[in-house]
Amino acid sequence: MLLGRIFKKPDNAKLYWKQIVYEMVSLGLGSLGLIAIISLFMGAVVTIQTVAAIDSPLIPLYTVGFATRQSFILELAPTVMCLILAGKIGSNISSEIGTMRISEQIDALEIMGVNSASYLIFPKIIAALVTIPIIIIYSMFLGIIGGWIVSTYSSNLSVSDYIFGLRWSFNLFHVFYALIKTLFFAFIITSIPAYHGYYTRGGSLEIGRSSTKSVVYSSIIILIINYILTQLLLV
């Protein structure tokens, strides 16, 4: 029912567009710093762990670059980063809309004749669908850079091996697979917290509960959808 209201024709497309741009900046730019730090360090750690795990001379060292690339493109960037974003963006959306609900701001919108569900949630969903895939590509890139930084000072791995591994057996479909997953996750990250925020009742305690619920539910649903999409697209 809420989804039906969210996707109704906007009252004023110009105002909605303004709101979408605002949300893109708020959701997208606001997450870049966190994603950069996490991606760089995770890329570095995955590389070190893979180097440490290879103890057989039969396994070529370029496997390290290959493993870092594959783990980042297939799982770490789309799934783990989206789980982190579910915590950061999800709790933000839920508490923002929940506060608007209990402070009667949503009632004020309704009385003005504005479709509050659409005005508050639609721009967030569109902004997330546009910006989160970009953030995930940025995370893939930075994760790989993190591994490259390790290869530049590691005595067990050369830069050329790492780069060869990155380019070895590259399948572009894996990037598309990651982006398809990301689109689903972006929708989950925004719609579930928005739902919990929109139906918050009571006071500040309930805002906290809605926020927690939305992060827990969206994380679980991301993991389930991840499994289903992987089964459908990769097997």
Binding site: N12, T99, A108, I111
Partner: peptide, 27 residues
């Protein structure tokens, strides 16, 4: 209909000017 709410129900993220502009820009 115009409504004055108990707590004001002004939109927190908007300035005073933007709050009053809101219904005018919408309609």
């Amino acid at each position: 209909i115009g409504m004055l709410f108990q707590g004001g129900a002004l939109f927190d993220s908007l300035t005073v000017e933007e709050n009053i502009k809101f219904p005018l820009e919408m309609y």
